[in-house]
Computed example of a mutant assay.
Amino acid sequence: MSDEQGAKPHYEAGPYVHCCEHPGCKEWGAFGFAKGNAAPNWFCFEHRPEWKPRNEARPQH
């Protein structure tokens, strides 16, 4: 006997589209940025934040 009797298959409607989070922008947010386990923020090419390599972002003593 199967545990999946009556289970409905899960179908995706298509790729998930993220819109740019910059106020007033309606472009596709292709660039996701997150710190740690936080949910990512999505931005288009024009409004993406400047991404620094790990060695540049670390404070130098």
Rank of each mutant, 00 (worst) to 15 (best):
M1P: 00
M1D: 09
M1G: 06
S2D: 13
S2E: 13
S2P: 14
D3K: 12
D3V: 04
E4W: 02
E4Q: 11
E4P: 04
E4R: 14
E4T: 13
Q5G: 02
Q5N: 08
Q5L: 05
Q5E: 09
Q5I: 11
Q5C: 06
G6D: 12
G6Y: 10
A7G: 01
A7K: 15
A7Y: 05
A7N: 03
K8V: 02
K8E: 09
K8M: 03
K8H: 00
K8A: 07
P9L: 00
H10C: 00
H10N: 09
H10F: 06
Y11C: 07
Y11L: 13
Y11N: 10
Y11V: 01
E12P: 08
G14L: 01
G14I: 01
G14S: 10
G14R: 08
G14K: 01
G14A: 03
P15E: 13
P15F: 05
Y16T: 04
V17R: 07
V17Y: 07
V17T: 06
V17H: 14
H18M: 03
H18Y: 14
H18C: 12
H18P: 04
C19L: 08
C19R: 14
C19Y: 00
C19W: 06
C20T: 12
C20E: 10
E21P: 04
E21N: 14
H22C: 12
H22G: 01
H22S: 10
C25R: 02
K26W: 02
K26F: 01
K26C: 03
K26E: 04
K26H: 00
E27S: 15
E27C: 05
W28C: 13
W28N: 11
G29N: 15
G29F: 15
G29L: 15
A30F: 09
A30H: 09
A30P: 03
A30D: 15
A30C: 08
F31T: 13
G32P: 14
G32D: 03
G32E: 03
A34K: 15
A34S: 15
K35I: 13
K35Q: 11
K35G: 07
K35S: 09
G36M: 15
G36F: 12
N37P: 10
N37Y: 12
A38T: 08
A38H: 11
A39K: 15
A39T: 12
A39G: 06
N41G: 09
N41C: 09
W42M: 05
W42G: 05
W42D: 00
W42T: 05
W42P: 07
W42Y: 15
F43L: 09
F43G: 08
C44A: 03
F45M: 10
F45D: 11
F45Y: 13
E46I: 08
E46N: 08
E46A: 08
H47Q: 07
R48G: 00
R48F: 02
R48V: 02
R48C: 08
P49R: 14
P49F: 01
E50F: 01
E50G: 12
E50S: 08
E50I: 10
E50K: 13
W51P: 04
P53Q: 07
P53K: 10
R54Q: 09
R54Y: 05
N55T: 11
N55D: 11
E56F: 02
E56I: 04
A57R: 15
A57F: 09
A57G: 08
A57C: 01
R58K: 08
P59W: 03
P59H: 01
P59N: 05
Q60N: 05
Q60F: 02
Q60K: 07
Q60R: 00
Q60A: 03
Q60Y: 00
H61N: 02
H61Y: 05
